[in-house]
Each structure stands twice: as C-alpha cells, then as structure tokens.
Design a protein around this nucleic acid. Structure first.
Lengths: 349, 349
DNA sequence: TGTTAGCACTCATAGCGCTTGAGTGCTAAC
DNA sequence: GTTAGCACTCAAGCGCTATGAGTGCTAACA
C-alpha cells in the first residue's frame, strides 16, 4: 500500500492531536481541522488503510485511533530529517547563567542542567556523570596533616580530583613526603590504570625504600580513584513528572518507573548500551519497545551526548510518554548542547 | 473518662491489627484475639468510649475503627517508655561490613546506610549529610599543576575535603607557591569563617606582596568550601516504598510525596526545625500532623541523630504511613546508631 | 474513480437499583 | 458488668440499561 501525502498528513494530525489530549483521535476530529477539507467518511477510509499498515491502532472497537510505535517512528524520522535543514529559534533556556560558573564543579552543573531540562520539558531527565575517554593520571599530591595522617589528592585528566585520607604508622617528615611525592609523580604521571603494572609497582617500592607500605596504600587510593570514575554517577530530575501522564501511572507502572529511576544501576548499563549502539549523530530517539529498559517500554527516551571539552563527555536522556513532544524535546536538547559547546569550546579562560 | 488497662489493651490491639492489614478493625476481630475473653458487644462498648476520647475513629458508620493521631501518640509514647528498660535483640543489620570501610568516604557510607534502612524497613529513608559543629579550617594545600593552574585543597575539621582548581595569570615557581601555602596555613589554620575578617585578609595580602590577586581567589575558594558545607546534602532511598501503602497513594498524594523527596530543599529546612526542637533524646517520632512538611501530613516520621565522632553529626529520618511499625523502626534505628557509635567511638584506627 | 451521506453496529462509560456483608448501637436479659 | 439479640447503616459489588463516541460498510453522487 502506498503512503501518499494525504495519509501522512492524517497520521501526523492524529499524532499531534493525541500528543495534546492523550485521548484516541476520531475521524470527525481530524476532518474539522484547518487543512482538512474532507468528510469524516473519507478520513475513515484513510485511517483504515493506516491501521492496515500498522501505523495506528484502535484501543477498542468503538474508539478513535492512537499511533503505534511504528507510526511514531515515521513521524520522528521525518522530523529529524527536516530539522537538519531549518534552524529553529527557541526561547533560550536559562542555562547561560549556569554555564558561566566554574568548570570544576561539574557535578553541580549537571544536576542543575537536569533540573532545568526537567522543568522546561515537563518530562523526566537523567544525566550521566562525565565519562573520561583518556583516563590518565595527571597529578598526585601528598600532604601531611597534623594528626599523623596523609592527605593524598589524585587528579586525573579532565581535572577529576579525588581525596583520600591515609593513616600511616610510620612517621614521615615533610621532606621525605616531598621526595616520595616527587618520585610517584615522576613514575606515574600520564599513565592509565592498565599501564601501572606490577613491574612498575615493585620498582617504585624499591626506590621508596622503607616506605613501601605507604606506597601500597597510595597506589590503592589511585586505583580506587580510577574505579570510582568507571562507575560514573547518574543524576535524575523531574521524576514526579510521570504523574502528569495517566498512561504511565496505571497499575504498578508509576512505582516501577520511580524504582528504576532511583536504582540508577540499570539505567547506567542501559545508557551504556545506548552509547555503544549510537551512531555519529548526537541525538537519538528511542520509542516504546526500542528503549532498552523493561520498565520503560511505555516510554520514549531522547538522548544526547554532551561534551565539556578535553574529551570529557556524557549522556543526557529525556524520558517521557510515547506521546511526548518530540519536536520540543529535540529542539531543547540541541539548544542545550549548543550552549554547552559555546561555553566549553572557548579557549579555557 | 478513665483509660483503664482494658481500654488500653483494646486500643493497642486495634493499632497493631491495623498496622498489619490496613483495614479498619471491628469488634469481632478483637474479641477473637488470644488475650481477649470478652464478647464483641463488650468490646464495642469500650470502643465507643475510646472513640469518645478521640483515640480511634470510624471512617464511615458501618466500618471498624482506625486509630487517630492521638491514639498513635499514646501507643508510641508507651512504647518509647518501655524501650528504656528492656534491651531488645534484633537481627543485626548488615551494617557492619559497611562500617568497616574507610571513613573518608562519608557520602558513600550515608547513601548505603539509607539504602539498607529503606530495604530493611520497607519505608522511605532520608539522611542529611553530616553537619559539622565546629567548622574550622584545618589545612590548606596549594599545588601547581602543569598547565598553569593551581589546585587548592581545603580541609575543614571533620576531614571535609574540597578541591578548587584556580586559573592564574601570573606564573609562580614552586618555591613561591610553597611559601604562599605556608603563609596561608599559618594565618588561617584553626579559624572559622567568621574569624577570617577583612583585617586579617588585608594583612595576608600585604604579606603575600605581588600575589594578592591569587590570595583573593584562594580565599574565595575557602569561603565557598564553608558555604557548601552549610547547605549540606540530603540523601533519600526507598521512595517507591510509599506505593506499598494505598493510603499514601490516593489522589495526588504519591506525586506530592515523591516531589517532596526529590526537591530536597523543603526537607532540609524541615529537618532543620526537627533538630532545633529536638530534645536530648536521640529518637523522635512525628505522627501525622506533627510532621512539619505539608505533603507528609498523612505520614509519620521517625528521626534519629547519628554521630561520626569529632562532633560530626546529622539526621536520619524514616518516613512511612501513620500505621508504620514504630517498634521495628525505632529498634532498627537504635541498632544502627549503636553500630555507628561502636565503630566511631573506637580510638580512630 | 474518488468522495460523501446514511445507517447499523460496537463498546466503554456512567448511572441506577439491588443485594450482600461487615460492622455498629441499643436494649434487655443474665 | 457482661452478653445475646436485633434493627440499622453503608461501602462495595453486580447486573441492567441508557448514552454517545466512533467505526465499517454500502450506495449514491460528481
């Protein structure tokens, strides 16, 4: 069967009407719309065809039609296609203020970003913490603290800073500590986790002489810092927004969704999958069953990859009902990415 | 009217039965219980009295009784009273493993603690980040990083560590940095935010000579560290548990509750109030209208103050329906507090 | 051949009346 | 003081009947 332009127009009209109302759309509703000069009967014929093609369905015999995943997919693909050409002007999000802040408070930035996106779109937002492509040790600082403890500060590329407070039995004078600090920096800087192997470790221990126990502790701290980065955190915001959409709150759905959002683990792995399967284009749309999280099969998810320069990047996902306003979400995300790029593309101030 | 022991027994029986079933409790149910050798009619007479006293109510004429806030209050007060004498043995929570971990990852500890409490009680748990009574600067470390940036590590009492990466125009050699570091530590150590006043600042700037601009930046970083600590974070866990209790999910209640939990601000101030109004005893129970958060007027909240040594303390709150198992919650919290105390009371290993 | 009017049909939803059963309060007897 | 008995109340469930939105199909029309 041919999907001519009239059928398309009807499909899109159904989708857009359903987006607003959440109710199945009947032939009469469509025929009363501006651009449609055909009678309900004609529309009905076309709708029967669209249903045959699997683009729309009736929830029950005497109801109007709602779009299927396939119908949405068609709509979204066409939309993304058109997007490439025209450049839309959206009211700018109040992200600018946010972005003028310090870079070293990445976490706060991400949380705020999630909040703004959630309240602006009325959907739920999740943001993965930054993922650092080149995870290398950049800098290591040891400082003695008065009570016999040592503060070890580990800095990775991308300016991830982690602190570890170590307790030592032996007593170190500042000069020894400085020497040790120098030795470790010398040996380890620029190396990734894999490159710090046993041979290197024993070599360092040897050179450290009597302080080899301390070196072990420090290296543990370094390893932990790397590990922490691998299990990067996930921030969510606007979870209660799902209550705006009755189709997401029937039965135990709301509970399951909220649980999924709270237990961020599953989300994390899912997002990982998204990343891998993702093509070059930065915006991806997952509709219904395409979402790789079971409790979200009634949702759609739009993801984007953000970048904070220095190869630091992560994912943003907007989670909403399948009848979400894809146009608005995609535009909003693009706008956000642009703003981020503008700020972080600047030569670092 | 006199609240004799039989009336009390009936009240408690109603409360405990209602805790389990969530359904109004009738006279027949009570009379069939072990210890009650009276007929339903007698129980009914007593129940009429209890209702007159405002301890129980009927949701509608032909229904059983449910406890009022006042009824719960009586029950809880008696329970707390008895607790003081007998020492209960609960199956220990799997907190021990957790507590054997490092102390310097307080945040992780608190999150895990919230999770364990939530899954163990089936209620929602919130934990305020540690509040440091004596907020004094303990240690300040400046390190030059290769790309012309300076890493400023600020350590407060209680081992709160914050990192700030500063960008400097001027070039500093390591020795100058060391001197500056020494100067700042000398001047600032042991001082609280209020004690770092303008006079002191200008004095430091003078001694720092040409690096006064840098000093300003560093002091800003210090101020920010203090400020961050004042808006201490709040962790929640087990929010979806509210869906277990129908009385909390009718209407928009679930949505409001989840929103409140997500927007932790209101919680924070409320918790603040709790702290202030709190007496010496560490466990407090808030029932229904006593809870100082509007969206939680249908809930009860049990709070405890935890302490991690060094005057570092915060609040834990368990949020559940008014028919929550107070006994279990209070016991669990006490057990947790004890475990924390045991670990942190040890001479710091 | 595409479009439309007309009509019979379906079915979710709402409203109505009925029954059921859990639970009560009251009274009178033990 | 306690209990048996009884009339009463009322939420909840069930079946029945509109109601109305919406459909598919057929036949007529341009």
């Amino acid at each position: 069967m041919e999907l001519d332009s009239r059928k398309k127009a009807i499909l899109y009209a159904i989708i857009e009407n359903y987006q607003e109302t959440g109710e199945p759309v009947g032939s009469r509703t469509i025929s009363k719309l501006e651009h449609f000069k055909f009678s309900p009967a004609t529309i009905r014929n076309e709708m029967a065809d669209l249903e045959e093609m699997g683009l729309i369905v009736q929830p029950h015999t005497s109801a109007g039609r709602i779009p299927t995943d396939k119908g949405y997919r068609l709509y979204v693909d066409k939309m993304l296609e058109e997007q490439k050409e025209e450049k839309k002007d959206l009211p700018a999000l109040p992200m600018a203020n946010l972005l003028s802040k310090r870079i070293d408070r990445v976490e706060e930035l991400l949380v705020k970003m999630a909040q703004i996106l959630a309240s602006n779109t009325n959907y739920t937002t999740m943001v993965t913490g930054p993922h650092y492509r080149k995870n290398k040790l950049k800098f290591l600082q040891l400082s003695g603290m008065e009570d016999g403890k040592i503060l070890a500060v580990v800095v990775l590329e991308g300016n991830i800073v982690k602190n570890n407070i170590l307790t030592v039995e032996e007593n170190l004078d500042p000069q020894e500590l400085l020497n040790l600090s120098f030795l470790l920096n010398n040996k380890l800087n620029g190396l990734s986790l894999e490159e710090i192997n046993l041979g290197l470790i024993s070599q360092i221990k040897e050179e450290a002489g009597s302080h080899s126990a301390l070196v072990t502790k420090i290296l543990d701290a370094v390893a932990e810092t790397f590990a922490q980065e691998e299990s990067y955190p996930i921030y969510t915001s606007g979870a209660p927004n799902i209550f705006r959409y009755p189709e997401l709150t029937g039965g135990d759905k709301a509970s399951e969704l909220i649980s999924t959002l709270e237990e961020k683990k599953e989300l994390g792995t899912a997002i990982g999958q998204l990343s891998e399967s993702g093509s070059q284009q930065d915006i991806q749309v997952f509709i219904g069953d395409e979402v790789p999280v079971d409790s979200m099969k009634d949702c759609s998810v739009v993801t984007a990859t953000y970048s904070l320069g220095e190869g630091v990047q992560g994912k943003i996902g907007i989670i909403g009902p399948k009848r979400m306003n894809y146009q608005k979400v995609v535009d909003t995300l693009k706008d956000t990415m642009n703003q981020l790029d503008q700020v972080f593309a600047k030569p670092e101030e």
